[in-house]
Write a protein that binds this DNA or RNA. Structure first.
Length: 998
DNA sequence: ACGGCCACTTA
DNA sequence: GTAAGTGGCCGTC
């Protein structure tokens, strides 16, 4: 509740019981504007997104204070703003913050509104000419701290971190992150008192603080930790060993001193409003309600009215004048959204999402806020690796298993000798049953001190591996205990090799992917920082990296224990937070049907692997090398000199410098472009060299990426290649494949297909390739409901020829192949969120002509145009789009003001439901395929997935029986939940190698 | 030793 | 114009 304090007669000094909150208003405005979805006031389109974020933040702070604990409510409170752009710093260094662009036009009117909002909440609003908000904050913070009061700075600005100390804390409400000395140390590598020294060396490109060239944060911290402060360092600069570093420190000493002045906050501003005057005053209910009503923030209006005891209906919205705002800004780009949905989105972690949140119409809590409440509770228990148990006896292990039974769930994680699950050996295993309650069970640590003899012996005190697994197996396979893991596929694969098939299970990575795809990574470290505000011990701190990396079994047990148990602890906490987020919007169905069941399916596929013909690849490498050598000689001859053909830089110098060919195109970084397009153009002008370069590059790629590299992936135990599929790597729902990537094995050229021929079936078997024909166009025809397309698919027509016929009026019979090619390019373009620029590039025609094609296409297929517009509306309003099965793909930055970025996200959003729905269908097919083949008499095994294709290995005599089963499962993959209005068609073939099967 | 850039491979 | 991963080069660590 708001603390009522009198300010009438006296302004007493602050005491230890007081708590001053200083809100950095200026930075908040910018951050809120960029982080939150745009929001405009209903009647006139006045932009108010940042205002909304600000009001919600302010209200929450006034109500609760910066932390949920009781007694943290502020007694003193002020919002501090920058007065004008020019400050005393510009006199020291004119370029300071000089390259800042003007604020976006729809932000400008919100500056004044936010000051008004501050006053409407009866909060002090302070700014002073000649000083930045940061200086005022520094001054107030120092004064209050000297009086013994606590100070909380509300800001995300790292420049304010120098103020942090015993009395002064900092909180970033937008990221839900608090900063103490530990966080400062993490960021700057020094304590708050040395932040200035580090900043003066490292500089800051955002504020245009120069610093010393060649010195970044890391080096700066190193130097300051060694020398203490800037002046000492500069005085002893001659003693620095590194040549360049020493020279720069000497040459740019004065620049560093100026930088120091720029970053040092002024703590003695002659403030016009004394700190004692900043006490919290009684909220003027009607005043606040009047303002909020005028802004159209219905939810917050109601809440404030309830709390302040004001009758919302009785209060008139105040008139708000915004200079220069009379014409509504409707460029069709910022869509109106209900105030209630925008209102609370600032509160959640990862808060850029615009999903439905907050309170329902009757004020009841809906899941999103429950999730927030829960997250808060979980965060309150610190992650502390000192509290974990190292389990060294069977009795203790049994206790932990009993705790898992008691709870009904347990988070677990395996530690192994390798990132490759097919070669990894179990080293230990961690468990967690409650936040903060976790253990590590070391099983195979060795004392490998690296000496030549000795070492290699098991560290004493570990439970024998087989005995531990005997105890754990019943728990890991018990239906009544849910096993929770992060990226379970890895652990599942490791454990299945030890004879344990984990079930049932949840996977926090897949939970995150289901609800937040597109918002960022789903790795544990990232999720931990996002949801728990905690940075787990990095793997490389335990095992090192690069050449000096050690395997986990060589890690000392205590160190391993801290790392491993923390992983289980964090995993459990993430589950507690993420699992409830599945409620609503069919997210649980998506998780249960498209994500979770994929884990064992993919694990089995990876485990099976595929055979490659090592000799064939080796011969190919030889052939490619010969071809390259011949081309190399010709190329050097034509160039008149020897150079590295693989270096685009050197090649550019030769072609466009020495030989003076007409270049023209440049890359992003300003270098000459030597892309195929450029080289092909040169070849078309009759130059001999470029086409040889293109041919050389093709061979070089085939050799290095495929024929040379693939044999290195053959597992010595199985003699097969085992790729790794990532389930949560793409925004759209596709899988990705790596180490090696088997989803980009060459197919287009004759030379390339030789690589594909090296993928072979085992003796007595065939490879069967089954691929969906035009699955994305079919999905589009269904989603956008296009009669001509649907009919064409029903009738089994050539879809590109039909498109051409529809567009250009030419009959399908005897059609010019070039006409069909254009239509095909357009069909692909549609799937990719077409642009005239892209189509023109693809077809080698002018932008205008390409635009005409698109126009004609939209006239013939108006439903496609409508579909695209609907998607754009949706992604701007909600921040995400959905597939036919309800999978979400988020585009949190789609509302950016950069027109190019905006268009890019719009195209991606148009593509996502098409690509993603197809990916969903594949996933459904794969899950069922595994069940179906498993339950049949067939010995057919699913080995690979390549986006629209599945590859199987089938005994010779079962091929004819397997193919109809495979087709049947794939063609009916949508059913029974969805009846596609277009048939799915699957083509399947069998052969000894992949090239001929495809 | 690591990361950005460029080029090339697939659906 | 969409979605991915890998390898070589090259500059900064």
């Amino acid at each position: 509740m708001i603390r009522a304090m009198s300010t009438q007669d006296s302004t007493p000094a602050l005491t230890a019981d007081d708590h001053l909150i200083l809100v950095d208003g200026s930075t908040f405005i910018f951050r809120a504007y960029h982080a939150l979805p745009p929001l405009t006031r209903k009647p006139d389109g006045l932009p108010v997104g940042a205002v909304s974020g600000f009001c919600n933040m302010l209200w929450k702070l006034l109500q609760e204070g910066p932390s949920p604990e009781k007694g943290d409510e502020p007694t003193h409170f002020a919002v501090i703003f920058d007065h004008s752009a020019k400050t005393f710093r510009n006199e020291i260094y004119p370029q300071y913050k000089a390259h800042r662009p003007d604020p976006p036009e729809d932000l400008v009117p919100q500056f004044g509104l936010i000051r008004e909002a501050t006053r409407a909440f009866s909060v002090h609003c302070v700014e002073q000419e000649g000083f930045e908000a940061d200086d005022l904050i520094a001054t107030y913070a120092r004064q209050a701290a000297e009086m013994g009061a606590r100070v909380t700075i509300v800001s995300g600005d790292k420049d304010l971190m120098q103020l942090i100390g015993p009395h002064v804390g900092m909180i970033d409400t937008m990221k839900n992150k608090t900063f103490g000395e530990a966080e400062v140390f993490e960021k700057f590598g020094v304590g708050p008192d040395k932040v200035i020294e580090v900043q003066s060396l490292a500089g800051d490109s955002v504020d245009n603080v120069p610093g010393v060239p060649g010195i970044g944060l890391k080096t700066a911290a190193l130097l300051i930790n060694e020398f203490g402060d800037l002046e000492t360092l500069l005085a002893q600069a001659e003693t620095i060993k590194q040549n360049k570093r020493r020279e720069n420190l000497i040459e740019f000493a004065d620049q560093a001193r100026v930088s120091r002045q720029l970053v040092t906050l002024k703590q003695d501003v002659p403030v016009k409003v004394p700190v004692t005057d900043l006490s919290v005053t009684v909220l003027d209910g009607p005043k606040a309600v009047g303002f909020l009503k005028a802004m159209g923030f219905t939810t917050l209006t109601r809440r404030v009215a309830e709390t302040a005891g004001a009758e919302a209906d009785a209060v008139e919205a105040v008139e708000i004048e915004v200079p220069g705002w009379d014409v509504p800004d409707h460029k069709g780009r910022i869509l109106e959204r209900s105030a209630s949905s925008a209102g609370t989105s600032a509160a959640g972690p990862g808060g850029t999402g615009a999903e439905k949140a907050g309170t329902g119409p009757d004020g009841m809590m809906v899941p999103q806020t429950l999730v927030e409440a829960r997250a808060h509770g979980i965060k309150a228990i610190p992650v502390d690796s000192g509290t974990y148990e190292t389990v060294t006896s069977l009795d203790r292990l049994k206790e932990w298993c009993a705790a898992a039974y008691e709870k009904g769930y347990v988070a677990f994680d395996t530690e192994t000798t390798s990132l490759d699950a097919m070669q990894a050996e179990l080293v230990g295993l961690s468990l967690a049953t409650e936040p903060g309650k976790a253990c590590y069970v070391p099983l195979a640590h060795v004392d490998g001190e690296g000496d030549l003899l000795g070492g290699g012996g098991l560290v004493p005190g570990q439970i024998p591996l087989n005995e531990a697994l005997e105890v754990l197996k019943p728990v890991l396979e018990d239906r009544s205990v849910l096993k929770i893991a992060q990226n379970l596929k890895y652990d599942w694969l490791v454990m299945t090799r030890y004879g344990i098939d984990i079930t049932p299970y949840d996977d926090t990575m897949l939970l995150s992917y289901t609800v937040d795809a597109g918002k960022g990574g789903n790795g544990m470290d990232e999720l931990s920082e996002r949801w728990l505000g905690h940075k787990p011990i990095p793997f490389k701190e335990v095992c090192g990296s690069g050449k000096s990396m050690i395997t986990f079994d060589k890690v000392p047990v205590d160190k391993a224990s801290a790392y491993a148990a923390e992983d289980a602890d964090v995993t459990l906490r993430l589950w507690l937070i993420l699992k409830p987020r599945l409620s609503g919007d069919h997210m649980a169905t998506v998780y249960e049907t498209l994500e979770r069941p994929m884990v064992p399916v993919l694990a089995r596929m990876e485990k099976r692997g595929i055979s490659v013909d090592r000799q064939m690849l080796s011969r190919l490498s030889g052939d490619f090398a010969q071809g390259m050598a011949a081309l190399e000689a010709e190329i050097h001859e034509l160039a008149g000199q020897s150079f590295n053909i693989g270096s685009p830089k050197q090649l550019g110098d030769i072609l466009f410098g020495k030989m003076n060919l007409p270049g023209g195109k440049k890359t992003k970084t300003g270098a000459w472009s030597t892309s195929v397009q450029v080289l092909d153009d040169l070849a078309a002008e009759g130059h001999e060299l470029p086409s040889k370069i293109v041919a050389w590059r093709q061979l070089s790629k085939l050799k290095s990426t495929y024929s040379d590299a693939l044999p290195g992936y053959i597992n010595p135990e199985t003699n097969r290649v085992h790729t790794s599929y990532a389930l949560a790597a793409t925004t759209t729902g596709r899988l990705s494949s790596s180490e090696p990537n088997l989803q980009n094995i060459p197919v287009r050229t004759e030379e390339g297909r030789k690589i594909r021929k090296a993928f072979i079936a085992e003796k007595g078997h065939k490879l069967v390739s089954a691929d969906y024909s035009q699955i994305e166009l079919r999905v589009l025809a269904h989603m956008a409901d296009i009669p001509q397309l649907k009919k064409a698919f029903d009738d089994g027509l050539d879809i590109h020829a039909m498109t051409a016929s529809e567009m250009f009026g030419t009959p399908i019979e005897g059609m010019d192949p070039m006409v069909r090619r254009r239509a095909k390019a357009i069909n692909f373009g549609i799937i990719y969120g077409i642009s005239a620029f892209g189509l023109a590039n693809q077809l080698g025609i002018g932008r205008g002509e390409a635009g005409d094609y698109i126009k004609t296409y939209f006239e013939r297929f108006p439903g496609i145009k409508e579909y695209m517009e609907a998607i754009k509306r949706q992604v701007h309003a909600d921040g995400f789009v959905t597939t036919i099965f309800g999978r979400k793909a988020h585009y949190p930055e789609v509302n950016t003001n950069n027109p190019n970025h905006r268009a890019f996200y719009e195209r991606a959003a148009i593509n996502a439901p098409i690509q993603g729905s197809a990916a969903d269908i594949l996933r459904r097919a794969m899950v069922r395929m595994e069940e179906r083949l498993d339950g049949s008499k067939l010995d057919a095994q699913m080995l690979l997935q390549v986006h629209d294709e599945l590859i199987f290995e089938v005994p010779d005599d079962q091929v004819d029986a397997a193919i109809p089963v495979i087709r049947e499962v794939m063609e009916n993959a949508c059913e029974p939940v969805l009846k596609l209005s277009v048939p799915l068609q699957v083509d399947a073939r069998a052969a000894h190698n992949w090239d001929e099967a495809h």
